[in-house]
Design a protein around this nucleic acid. Structure first.
Length: 772
DNA sequence: TTAGGGTTAG
């Protein structure tokens, strides 16, 4: 029957025989027999028959190299062969091949069939609309399918207004045209116009309704999505899938699973896409057993796992900690791995902290996309490798991969962890220059970054300018106030968030209590602590710290002894620190002994105790602790000190001479020493200079690297500017004294970060109110 | 031979 449409001039002499063969082709084997017949009759280069052959290949999913061989064997393909090749590539998503073939076809002087244009427009992506004016000139713009393809291109890539103009000009509009423009409006977030056209549309079909469901889902308006879904005159499996993914992608995985049950009990047969969404929902619920049972049940009904579903399953196993199962699927997928498969496996390794394995896959990955880079950058950041995260971000830019908001959240957060403000500011400029829009989580990360870098004014500015704020936004700012010892602002913010109807969570309370503690606000802190519904162990650590810092050491000890849960190291750490400040050796020894039981390997605790003895002038005890550390093999653990300068992080360690400006740094240090001597800072009980001369002791108190960092800052910074010493600068007693003196000698303000806390040194004074 | 649904990163 289909042969009757072919003009007789194209019919070769054996056509009647072949037509019988053609009619019998119903699988790939018969297709090959048909091919053999063509060769036998020397028709394997004839345009019409080869075109038929390619159409069969497309229909029966013949391997691509088989089809390419057929195409390549024709020296001068005609319009029909080209057309069917284009259709083949259209079916398997070979957009580049379509554009190349289309060009080749024109170069050969062949006039493409009108049916080719919609395929080419679709394949051209955002370039599809460029054909529009060409079609107008050629008089092709009245073609039904061409106009629909153009409408789709405008809907997907914009400008949507141009699509609307085309739509309005049309005298006859098909259902597909209406659907295309409505879908286009959803794509551009124009809910009002999408709804208006939906209401105006005369004959809506199931696709129209489904477009509305997925449109509202994408706008996170699940109430309306569900309402349209419930009102649909008929539902297809795609409609169910749209509603399912609406729930799944907006974090309502349990609702998705219950809708899936409803779908099955209604008698709708799920397809492979359903399976993908359901597996992903099981993954969010942390329920691999459910996913396995669904896979099995649907498998029994003939629904199989396509590469999408297999990737979803891989991700499920990865997230449930079954890495070997995930890797097995990854290996089995072979050529069917997509970039999503690779990315999922990379982040699986990063999640378990296996950076080398993630790195290996990243290097092997054939086509990296922005998510691949984001997975790596976030992975580094989450594994405490902030500097490497930033290095990778720079590499990404060098490779001309455009970062998105997700990239920036990781990078901003990495800058925050490093306390690298200059770098942070550069990142903010980058975001502005490239018009990267920051959502709530992006703005929250900015507040975190500025707070960690000590720029509270900037942090507040971001906070104040935000349209909506959540508990994380408030916590980021409260934690910043806490680090700066600003209890008043922290308490104000707590009240403000309550007024806005946002209930403080455990993190908020830790921040507020810390702020009170660093400001010496005993009564306010007590009140807050008493108001917490069920204070946890960290809240206890905060109140112990507060009581200890203000000198209520016995009360602090009573709280520790009366705690409903057994205290962790942080609780005893706070107590020991308080004992150091107030020189309460007896209680300090009690706390230290508890700490040595809980964390025998943590050299910081020994240093804290040693510093307590030092502040009390008990030098014999200081030496005893040093010996203890030596016998326990804890002398090697010396931290790096990091300084941010000119958007680079400079690292220093004890006895370090690896820095390229080492000579100048040591020279500056010696100069400082000379100035201090001249200013009379020699013979007092401070061990500042003693440490500089005694390498052994330096290692114990770990201040040499810090002083190198300070010397570096002095070296590179302009007179009078703020010096920013970042990360790992544990300010022990002598270092604190040293920086105070430096600030006076050099007449500058020095800002030093001590873990989460900032110290502003100016004119031999420090902003903190500890009793140093 | 047109229009609706899918997996990954913060």
């Amino acid at each position: 029957m289909f042969l009757s449409a072919i003009s007789s001039s194209l019919m070769p002499q054996f056509s009647s025989h072949l037509s019988r063969v053609v009619l019998r082709v119903s699988n790939i084997l018969q297709l090959q027999q048909f091919h053999a017949q063509l060769i036998q009759h020397a028709l394997h280069r004839h345009d019409y028959w080869v075109a038929r052959l390619i159409a069969f290949c497309t229909h029966f999913h013949a391997p691509s190299d088989y089809i390419c061989r057929i195409f390549d064997s024709i020296h001068q393909p005609g319009v029909m062969v080209f057309t069917n090749m284009l259709r083949y590539y259209s079916k398997c998503g070979g957009n580049n091949e379509i554009l190349m073939l289309f060009e080749e076809m024109q170069n050969c002087g062949l006039k493409p069939d009108a049916c080719v244009y919609p395929v080419v427009i679709k394949a051209a992506g955002n370039g599809g609309v460029l054909f529009h004016s060409q079609f107008v000139k050629m008089g092709l713009d009245s073609g039904k399918y061409i106009r629909n393809a153009l409408l789709n291109a405008y809907g997907k890539y914009g400008p949507i207004e141009a699509g609307r103009l085309l739509f309005d000009e049309m005298t006859e509009r098909s259902v597909a045209d209406w659907n295309a423009i409505i879908s286009g409006y959803w794509n551009w977030g124009c809910e009002g116009e999408a709804k208006r056209l939906f209401d105006l549309m005369p004959d809506k079909n199931v696709i129209t309704w489904t477009t509305m469901v997925s449109g509202y889902s994408k706008m996170k308006d699940l109430e309306n999505a569900r309402s349209y879904f419930d009102r649909m005159p008929e539902k297809s499996v795609v409609s169910w899938n749209a509603m399912l993914s609406g729930f799944a992608q907006n974090g309502f995985s349990e609702e998705a699973l219950s809708l899936f049950n409803e779908m099955v009990s209604t008698g709708v047969t799920p397809d492979e896409t359903t399976l993908v969404t359901v597996i992903s929902s099981c993954s969010s619920c942390g329920d691999p057993a459910l996913a396995e049972s669904v896979v099995k049940t649907l498998g029994d009904r003939g629904v199989c796992l396509n590469p999408f579903a297999k990737t979803a399953l891989l991700d499920l196993y990865a997230k449930c900690g079954r890495l070997e199962m995930a890797r097995k699927i990854f290996n089995e997928l072979g050529v069917y791995r997509s970039s999503v498969t690779w990315n999922s496996m990379i982040s699986a390794y990063m999640r378990t902290g296996d950076i080398p394995a993630a790195n290996e896959l990243f290097d092997q990955m054939p086509k990296k996309n922005v998510v691949s880079w984001n997975s790596m950058i976030a992975g580094y950041a989450q594994n405490g490798q902030s500097s490497l995260a930033i290095e990778l971000f720079k590499e990404m830019i060098n490779e001309h991969i455009m970062p998105d908001e997700v990239t920036m959240v990781s990078v901003i957060s990495a800058c925050g962890h490093l306390g690298a403000l200059e770098l942070g500011n550069w990142v903010v400029n980058f975001i502005n220059a490239h018009h990267i829009n920051l959502s709530l989580s992006g703005q929250n990360s900015l507040i975190f970054m500025y707070s960690r870098c000590g720029s509270m004014n900037e942090a507040k500015l971001i906070f104040d300018e935000m349209e909506t704020r959540d508990v994380v936004s408030h916590n980021a700012l409260i934690t910043g106030f806490a680090a700066h010892g600003n209890g008043v602002e922290a308490l104000k913010l707590m009240q403000k968030m309550k007024d806005e109807g946002i209930e403080p969570d455990r993190i908020s309370y830790i921040g507020i209590l810390t702020a009170c503690s660093h400001s010496g606000m005993l009564e306010e802190g007590r009140k807050v602590f008493e108001s917490i519904n069920a204070p946890d162990i960290d809240h206890y650590a905060c109140i112990v710290d507060l009581l200890g810092r203000v000198g209520k050491l016995d009360e602090a000890r009573k709280v520790v002894e009366a705690m409903p849960v057994s205290p962790h190291a942080q609780v005893y750490g706070s107590l020991l620190n308080a004992c150091r400040i107030h020189k309460r050796v007896d209680l300090g020894e009690f706390a230290a002994n508890k700490l040595f039981e809980l964390e025998p390997e943590n050299s910081g605790n020994y240093i804290l105790l040693s510093n307590m003895y030092a502040s009390a002038g008990k030098w014999k005890e200081v030496d005893r602790i040093r010996e203890l550390m030596k016998t326990r093999g804890l002398m090697k653990t010396t931290g790096w000190s990091w300084v941010e300068y000119d958007r680079k992080i400079h690292k220093f360690i004890v006895g370090d001479r690896s820095h390229e400006q080492s000579d100048e740094i040591y020279h500056t240090l010696a100069e400082l020493k000379r100035k201090m001597k001249a200013a009379g800072y020699i013979a007092d009980k401070s061990n500042v200079l003693r440490d500089v001369e005694d390498e052994d002791k330096e290692e114990m108190v770990g201040t040499h690297s810090e002083r190198l960092a300070v010397a570096f800052c002095l070296l590179v910074s302009e007179q009078g500017t703020v010096i920013r010493v970042v990360k790992n600068l544990r300010i022990c007693w002598d270092c604190h004294t040293a920086i105070k003196m430096i600030s006076k000698l050099e007449k500058r303000e020095i800002i030093v970060r001590d873990n989460n806390r900032f110290h502003h040194f100016k004119d031999n004074k420090c902003s903190c109110n500890d009793f140093w």
